[in-house]
């Protein structure tokens, strides 16, 4: 019958109209500033820098606990080139007390950043991670969107809060590396033997939730392990 479809359609819209007043699952709108959806663990927005507050005297001293050693790999790998790093001239003790270079300037221009997470994947020191803060609007579109070291530095506890699973894995990896370093320092074993033992360890540390980052992670993990392995010899000299 002609016009049947119109009546069916009008019944459908009427159902929607009245249904939206009674059924909560129809009305899925979240009225944003007042109410918000809890952040997903896999959420990632812009990078931030991690500092370890445990080993330093003042837990809030972000500069002392900064993991970044200004190796500038992220700066070079960044596809849109939004990271600006100045390497320090002097060395300062890092989170575990080793003398290291540190970034005298570490700026990220988040108006340029495309949230690709490549900086996170290439970092051998687990120093840069993805943040979940998304309310970053500012009235200064140049200075306000260029985040400096102080704004970027956030504690490892914060990292555990936003990405618990990933942060736990990172901590395991770091402590494993440190344990190996310590063992090597105390035993004074032969470098070749240590290297041979560490290859399976690097392979074991690979499982990670993000699949496409896995390959880069392997490289980063291997680099991390070899770096931590080489550190004592560098420090010893």
């Amino acid at each position: 019958m002609l016009g049947e479809g119109i009546l069916k359609g009008m019944a459908e819209t009427a159902k929607n109209f009245f249904g939206s007043y009674f059924s909560a699952e129809r009305l899925t709108t979240v009225e944003y500033p007042e109410e918000r959806i809890a952040s997903y663990e896999a959420a990632r927005v812009f990078p931030f820098l991690i500092f370890d507050s445990k080993n330093t005297a003042d837990p809030a001293d972000w500069e002392a606990g900064m993991r970044c050693v200004a190796c500038q790999i992220c700066e070079k790998e960044c596809p849109p080139k939004c990271i600006y790093i100045d390497k320090s001239k002097d060395k300062k003790p890092d989170a575990v007390g080793k003398a290291q270079f540190y970034p005298s300037r570490f700026d990220i221009d988040i108006s340029v950043c495309m949230s690709c997470q490549i900086c996170v994947e290439v970092c051998p020191f687990e120093a840069i991670k993805m943040d979940t803060v998304y309310e970053l609007s500012t009235d200064d579109r140049f200075g306000g969107l260029l985040l400096d070291r102080k704004q970027l530095a956030k504690s490892n506890e914060y990292y555990h809060r936003i990405h618990p699973t990933e942060a736990a894995e990172v901590d395991d990896r770091l402590s494993e590396g440190r344990a190996k370093t310590d063992a090597k320092m105390t035993a004074g074993a032969i470098a070749a033997a240590i290297r041979g033992a560490e290859v399976p360890a690097a392979a074991k540390a690979t499982p990670k939730p993000v699949a496409e980052g896995a390959v880069a992670d392997v490289v980063a993990d291997a680099a991390a392990v070899t770096k931590t392995a080489e550190r004592p010899t560098g420090a010893g000299n």
Partner: peptide, 13 residues
């Protein structure tokens, strides 16, 4: 508001 409800939205509020 009516159109919004038909599309299961809230509309201007």
């Amino acid at each position: 508001k009516g159109l919004a409800r038909i599309q299961n939205r809230i509309g201007p509020n």
